[in-house]
């Protein structure tokens, strides 16, 4: 790849819900070909960070660049795995059709999903070990299986940068291992993967890059360097109460 720019570059990103800041002045530069964990306490803005990068929530200010160019122009390089609870698993659709959704952008407006695309979707299902469930309705899959087909859908997008929102939430140990294996394969192929993660015990094992977040970026860098007790304390140990009060004051005065 000819990219020598960072895979993801964020400058001065601020996001506010109802004028109440959720992310403050986030600056971030993440190199390509890493599996990056995003960790932080509840309400730290982890999911919001991903959504703000992907333009899913409005930014109050800030610049987001993917491989040196504005995100809007690099959309086709980006893949996204939303949280599993955000969709209706009772929806009338089977695993194969769901995975094929990742190809819609390539297929284009108004064109049908042809056999060739279905084959590609099936290959992705095979890669996550779900080929035999291709024609099963999605509500009849376990939580881990659902997460795997979500991952397969991202794989067929064939992106260079992936954002995954809590892919390990509510999955069994087997699926977790399988997902990690897939993430490492993605990195070997030169892809960059961002993963919102909760379990601090596995951080060192899973990620080679780490973003520690609590409304601001507390620390970011290679996991072995930044995953220190000092940084953990700053990320998780007590919120800045005065700042909280200020945030409340801003929220309360305008909504």
């Amino acid at each position: 790849m000819q990219h020598d720019a960072p895979a993801l570059h964020i400058r001065d990103l601020t996001v506010a819900y109802h004028r109440k800041p959720v992310l403050w002045d986030v600056d971030l530069d993440v190199p390509p070909s890493v599996v990056a964990g995003i960790v932080g306490p509840n309400g730290a803005g982890k999911s919001t960070l991903i959504k703000a990068v992907l333009d899913l929530v409005p930014r109050t200010s800030g610049v987001v660049e993917v491989f040196g160019r504005p995100y809007r122009r690099q959309r086709r390089l980006v893949g996204y795995v939303p949280q599993r609870e955000t969709v209706d698993w009772d929806y009338p659709i089977n695993a194969l059709e769901l995975v094929a959704m990742g190809l819609y952008r390539i297929i284009g407006w108004c064109r049908p999903v042809t056999a060739a695309y279905r084959t590609r979707a099936l290959e992705a299902l095979e890669e996550v070990g779900m080929a035999e469930f291709a024609h099963r309705q999605i509500s009849r899959l376990s939580g881990g299986q659902q997460q795997r087909i979500f991952l397969a859908r991202a794989l067929v997008q064939d992106a260079d940068v992936y954002f995954m929102d809590e892919p390990f939430a509510g999955v069994d140990a087997g699926t977790e291992k399988a997902i990690i294996a897939i993430l490492q394969r993605l990195r070997e192929r030169g892809k960059t993967v961002f993963v919102v993660h909760h379990d601090l015990e596995t951080v060192r094992e899973y990620f080679d890059y780490l973003v520690m977040l609590n409304m601001r970026v507390v620390a970011a860098g290679p996991a072995r360097d930044v995953f220190t007790s000092e940084n953990l304390k700053r990320t998780y140990g007590g919120r800045l109460t005065l700042l909280d009060r200020a945030v409340d004051a801003i929220g309360g005065s305008s909504s």
Partner: peptide, 29 residues
């Protein structure tokens, strides 16, 4: 002191907050 923010970044945040600081919050500061 508390937020460990670099000198260059100090001004904008303070500029924003100074307008939302009521008497009570000021006393705490």
């Amino acid at each position: 002191d508390v937020g460990k923010v670099g000198l260059i970044d100090l001004h904008p945040a303070a500029d924003y907050l100074e307008h939302y600081t009521d008497a009570e919050l000021r006393d705490e500061l």
